[in-house]
Computed example of a mutant assay.
Amino acid sequence: MTLWGRLLVAGLRSAQGWLQGTLLPYDYQLRKLMSALDVTQEEATAFRSARSGLAAAHPKFMPSSRHRVRDWIAAFLVFAVISTLAAAYTAAVQADPGPSILLLLGTAVAGLILSVVVWAAGAVIVLSTDDPTVSEKAKFATAFGLVGGLPAGLVLPWTFGTDAWGRWLADSVGLL
């Protein structure tokens, strides 16, 4: 079955669950449904309040998050990429005939900018959904990626006495 076929079947199953009263739509699905039905503002407000009241009274009707795995992967990748960038910088600092001070400063600035970009991309992936079932732990882990990744990449190579973790990246970008 093609991707479009699988998506169509999944959409039909969701709609069947809505009609049978065994599943509530996501907020973004509800907005699309209401715009397709051309409901008035009062009807939309009444429908949203009824949905939120039903969701609070019966959480089993809330759809499970299909974003949960994606969010945890994004949180892990944010931490891994940022800590690896910092470990590469640490490997360059620990090198015996190390690079020049100017190259280290330029690498530090570029590494910080790249770390912020990676962190922002991870935050957009995790926080961009209207899904109320997205794990708060995944949101926290993504937010922690920048704050925890930089110190981890800078401190752990000194603590364990090895820079093997970041040496390959530092060598690849020309720091060693």
Rank of each mutant, 00 (worst) to 15 (best):
W168S: 02
R13F: 08
T162C: 04
A50K: 00
V117H: 06
W72R: 08
V93E: 12
L103A: 09
L19H: 11
P63R: 13
T162A: 08
I113P: 06
R13H: 07
T84M: 08
S35D: 11
L19A: 09
D130K: 13
T159N: 09
A141Q: 04
W168Q: 01
L175E: 04
V126A: 03
P132T: 09
I73T: 12
G145P: 00
V39Q: 01
V9F: 11
R6E: 11
T107M: 07
I82C: 01
G11C: 04
T90A: 15
G106K: 14
G106D: 10
V116N: 13
V147E: 03
A152H: 08
R13T: 06
V147I: 12
M34A: 00
A15S: 05
A46D: 07
G148N: 05
L102G: 15
V124T: 14
A87R: 14
L23T: 13
I73M: 14
D38R: 15
L24V: 07
A95Q: 10
F76W: 07
F61C: 00
F140S: 10
G11F: 06
T133Y: 15
G53K: 06
P59M: 03
Q20Y: 03
G145A: 02
V124E: 11
L176M: 14
W4H: 14
I82P: 00
V116L: 15
S14C: 04
G149C: 04
R66Q: 13
W72Y: 15
L114H: 07
S14K: 08
V124S: 13
V116W: 11
L24Y: 13
H67P: 01
D131A: 05
A152C: 08
L114C: 10
W18F: 15
W4G: 09
S83E: 09
A170D: 06
W18I: 08
A55N: 01
A92P: 03
Y26D: 09
T159R: 11
S64N: 06
H58P: 01
A108R: 10
D163V: 13
L112S: 12
R6Q: 12
P63W: 09
Y89K: 06
M1K: 14
V93C: 08
V109I: 11
A56E: 12
V93P: 03
V93F: 12
T40R: 06
G106C: 09
L23F: 04
D131Q: 05
A92W: 05
F140Q: 12
H67S: 11
L30W: 02
S64I: 07
D27F: 15
V39Y: 03
P63K: 10
Q29P: 00
G11Y: 08
H58C: 02
K139E: 06
L112C: 10
E43S: 01
A55Q: 02
A141W: 11
L33R: 00
L103Q: 10
F47T: 03
V39P: 01
L12D: 12
L37S: 02
A92E: 03
F140G: 07
W4C: 07
L176P: 14
T133I: 14
M1Y: 14
G161S: 01
A10Y: 09
T162K: 04
A164H: 14
M34E: 01
F76V: 05
